[in-house]
């Protein structure tokens, strides 16, 4: 991206952010949610950014989920300047589960519950101010999340 375009985008988003904070920050990425596989999700969310595998991302999930409709997920990272975290289930028909955007005073930690349709990997993407990182963890699902 050229510097001038960047500057324009920055100033435009700055103006919009003042007028419509929540609408801008939470712009729903429709094509990413409509993507049917992990590659398409990543391309839609992060365009061509290369993700670095990171051991500084901790994904806490049960090794065996009794009920795939309610799988607790806790994500923490020691990476600095985290801007967003996305949770993806590679096996779900709609792989993108959620995208979470952090202000700079929010700690890089989240906890939620997700649906996992069957045994497979949960993939976490962490975007910092200058790099995309990733980690994954396998979950065995006994009762399908029916998603």
């Amino acid at each position: 991206m050229s510097l001038s375009r960047r500057t324009i985008l920055k100033s435009v988003s700055g103006v919009l952010a003042l007028a419509l904070p929540s609408a801008v920050l939470a712009k729903w990425p429709q094509t990413a949610f409509e993507s049917k596989n992990v590659e398409a999700v990543l391309k839609n969310l992060y365009s061509e950014s290369e993700a670095i595998e990171s051991s500084d991302i901790t994904i806490k999930v049960p090794a065996i989920a009794e009920n795939g409709r309610f799988v607790p997920v806790e994500i923490e990272t020691t990476l600095a300047k985290v801007e967003s975290i996305s949770i993806i289930s590679e096996i779900n028909p709609v792989p993108l589960l959620g995208e979470f955007k952090f202000a700079d005073n929010v700690l890089p930690w989240i906890k939620t519950r997700v649906k996992i349709s069957k045994t497979g990997n949960v993939i976490v993407m962490v975007k910092t101010n200058n790099q995309l990182y990733t980690a994954r963890k396998q979950i065995t699902v006994n009762l399908s999340g029916c998603v």
């Binding site: 409709r69 649906k115 998603v147």
Partner: peptide, 13 residues
């Protein structure tokens, strides 16, 4: 000030 915002799909329980 918005401190956290999330985009969810049907995959959240």
């Amino acid at each position: 000030k918005v401190i956290m915002s999330a985009n969810w799909g049907m995959g959240i329980s």
